[in-house]
Write a protein that binds this DNA or RNA. Structure first.
Lengths: 262, 262
DNA sequence: ACTGATTTGGGTACGCTATACGCAAACAAG
DNA sequence: CTTGTTTGCGTATAGCGTACCCAAATCAGT
């Protein structure tokens, strides 16, 4: 094996199962899939902070450095993890309904992916790993937007917009609900602790709007206990924005029969 | 000084300059503002990865542990940094133009903040620090949406939506343009290296849409050299979505004179 | 069956991180 | 001048990713 650590091509070969055992030499006791799976289990259970090469190796019952026989770096392992969970999403009912409800399903599916694997929110893939999982997910999600009058680039932009929104909104959501158990104190307790001090120091004239809206929003979320509603609000706004663009695009291309073949 | 490390109230007192020197004892050689400023300088120069307690201390010419006399943890330092850069934004022309162009200005202002301080994208404020900078920014940005017929909660949601979009889109943008210099190879070179392998392994039937749109988008971005356009597209979609909601909200409240006082 | 090449497992070690602890220096008040 | 208080900071610890190296295991060729 040539020295190809930190090589994106190497990662790509890993992603597509192109690294066949030469036949010679000691047989590997564990496979790369087990390494990836173990890493995902650890990250699911203990979060991104709990994910270390040591913790993954421990879970597999092997030595830490053994992992580096299968993976050239932690960064590469993260790529494999991302591609692996990306392969989880399925859109079996791809063709049903109008494009908007399909796209909405894509959004919810992504949200549930983030909820199942919160560490994904902190896994900054500098460039997304171009593996079967990621590409397959991209392909499936693009079908949602196919044939509704958008150009290829517009389809990509619209999808990016929705996925970006879901990522951000889910991060807010999880942070909101998870923070409680992580720090041991609920959101209410946190505010209750800070409120008197803020009250003393905050210039209510200067920050009038922030105070009014902030308390309004806090009361709302807490009262109705429905952060769900914030997610829905944003999602519907994003979809509305895309919808108005789709409508406009259709009007502008009445002469041309179709922008892109199905 | 009582043992109040990891205490959110302590952080709040720091943010609002409520920690006066008692008068007694040795005078501090450096102040907390210098620590925060130095940390921001380091992060601006070397990114989030280059930011360590050592590097900050080195820049100040003090011992590493001296920092802990002013800051109880790195996490707290990050809070101070976030609040500090949040105080940078100014909306002197708050009242000018219609709400949409004002909100657009808010978006661009936030983008430039992220561009000036890319590490902000990786500074995960679990709960945003409630300092003068953050609250002042929140207040100023809310004024953009004041008096256009939205409830308080809706104003908060709309602003969150826009800021979330800008955050995500700017992250994509910076990743795209910065990645080149970080890894030493441009985006083109990266693709050129992966393309032959992907070509060999990719089932062009199964992933037809991903391949077509992916290359389309790549060619577009590279060709027009305009990731700018992607940012604009998403931003206009988000604003469209909010606009249609605002219009609908106005129609629903024709009977009531005004939702909230200016 | 034996030899040599090849590959994996994993121990040890290095440089990095945040930070707990404790002591000495510097200063104010009595 | 003493006493109390605060700061600066050296030392130490536990954890991290991973470079390096050698032994164990397994193959192909004889």
């Amino acid at each position: 094996m040539v020295d190809d650590r930190r090589n994106p091509v190497r990662t790509l070969e890993l992603l597509w199962n192109l690294r066949a055992h030469s036949g010679r030499g000691r047989r590997a006791g564990i496979g790369i899939d087990q390494v990836t799976a173990a890493a995902i289990e650890v990250a699911d259970a203990d979060g991104m902070d709990g994910l270390s090469m040591r913790s993954v190796a421990d879970r597999l019952g092997v030595g830490t450095m053994s992992l580096y026989r299968h993976v050239s770096s932690k960064e590469e392992l993260l790529d494999l993890m991302v591609d692996s969970v990306s392969a989880e999403v399925r859109y079996d009912d791809a063709g049903h309904g109008d494009w908007r409800s399909r796209l909405e399903r894509v959004a919810r599916s992504n949200r549930s992916m983030f909820e199942r694997h919160p560490w994904l929110l902190r896994a900054f893939p500098r460039r997304p790993p171009q593996g079967p999982g990621v590409i397959g997910k991209y392909d499936a999600e693009l079908r949602t937007l196919e044939g509704i009058g958008l150009t290829d680039v517009e389809m990509d932009s619209a999808l990016t917009l929705v996925l970006g929104y879901v990522r951000d909104a889910t991060a807010n959501l999880l942070e909101w609900t998870t923070m409680s158990e992580r720090t041991g104190q609920s959101d209410d307790e946190w505010w209750a602790e800070l409120a008197p001090l803020l009250d003393r120091v905050l210039d209510r004239e200067r920050y009038s709007l922030a105070v009014r809206v902030g308390t309004s929003a806090a009361r709302y979320y807490e009262g109705l206990h429905d952060p769900e509603h914030a997610f829905e609000f944003g999602l519907q706004r994003v979809l509305d924005g895309i919808e108005s663009f789709v409508t406009a695009a259709r009007l502008n291309t009445v002469s041309k029969p179709d922008q892109e073949g199905t």
